[in-house]
């Protein structure tokens, strides 16, 4: 039960943490969904060719981070619209992956990891540790250091920063680098838990991560609650499928609706508190 919860929530949490930082710097990374997929595929490639989980996870994070920073930098350099280019990335990445996969592995379908890899328990514990570390460090940096101040200032008032000689675009690109890095880790975890790269393995987790940022009221602690909330809803829905005599497909949208209701309740509480 706890393990299921972690398997489901950690990838979302990692991606949401990255997205949270880009949001703090003023532009939300809408390409998270595609970037997770990218991370998952890179993980598979490195395990396939180098047979090392450690290298695979690092490379997935670094390369996905560079891709994310690259597209954000390109968009800002040429003054494009980050929402459209983000959607474009979501469209491009799965297409490019299938192309590469067909060329290199001769199939666009499931790519199984044949070598033995660590057990799920070790994996979950490892990633749990990793997420906690990154979370604590990044939140500390954001709250207490000059660099963190710069990120928050970019999000709050870009113009003011520009006037004072700062470079907000550079800050934003750096947050995208971090966001991509986190998406890479998230994708790596998905591939490792399933022991394979499966097309569309992210299956909406990137979008849920975006939702988690807002459900968490754009606060760092809120992020944890929001992701746990999703995870519990999902795990309950999976359990409920077998218990109640109701059509299974009814439960698929369950996490969204529960979260939606949770959002309304929170809004109501906030309102009564204010008045």
């Amino acid at each position: 039960m706890i393990q299921s919860l972690m398997i489901y929530s950690l990838p979302i949490f990692l991606a949401a943490l990255g997205g949270y930082l880009t949001d703090k710097a003023g532009i939300l990374n809408i390409a998270i969904e595609g970037l997770i997929l990218c991370g998952a595929f890179i993980t598979f490639i490195f395990i396939y060719f180098l047979d090392s989980i450690f290298i695979a996870v690092i490379m997935a994070a670094v390369l996905t981070g560079l891709l994310s920073a690259g597209f954000a930098g390109l968009t800002m350099r040429f003054k494009g619209n980050i929402f459209i280019t983000g959607l474009a990335m979501n469209l491009l990445i799965p297409g490019v992956i299938t192309l590469i996969s067909k060329r290199v592995f001769l199939t666009g379908g499931v790519l199984q990891i044949t070598s033995t890899i660590v057990t799920t328990e070790t994996l979950v514990l490892g990633f749990l540790f990793l997420s906690c570390m990154i979370y604590l460090i990044s939140i500390y940096l954001l709250k207490n250091t000059q660099a963190g101040l710069l990120v928050r200032a970019t999000g709050l008032n870009r113009r003011a920063l520009e006037v004072r000689g700062g470079n907000p675009s550079r800050v934003q690109v750096l947050t995208f680098l971090f966001s991509g890095f986190m998406c890479g880790l998230s994708g790596a975890m998905l591939t490792l838990t399933v022991h394979a790269y499966v097309p569309n393995i992210s299956s909406g987790k990137g979008w849920l991560a975006l939702a988690a940022i807002y459900l968490g009221n754009q606060k760092a602690t809120g992020l944890i609650y929001a992701v746990l909330f999703f995870a519990i809803a999902e795990v309950l829905a999976n359990l409920a499928q077998g218990t109640f005599d109701l059509p299974s497909s009814l439960f698929v949208g369950f996490p969204y609706l529960v979260t939606f209701i949770g959002l309304i309740i929170r809004g109501m509480i906030d309102r009564t508190r204010r008045s």
């Binding site: 040429f78 494009g80 990335m89 297409g95 299938t98």
Partner: peptide
């Protein structure tokens, strides 16, 4: 998909 993605990517860039 790649073609559609590329066009979306380029369309707002200046």
């Amino acid at each position: 998909e790649v073609i559609r993605g590329m066009i979306l990517l380029m369309i707002t860039l200046r």
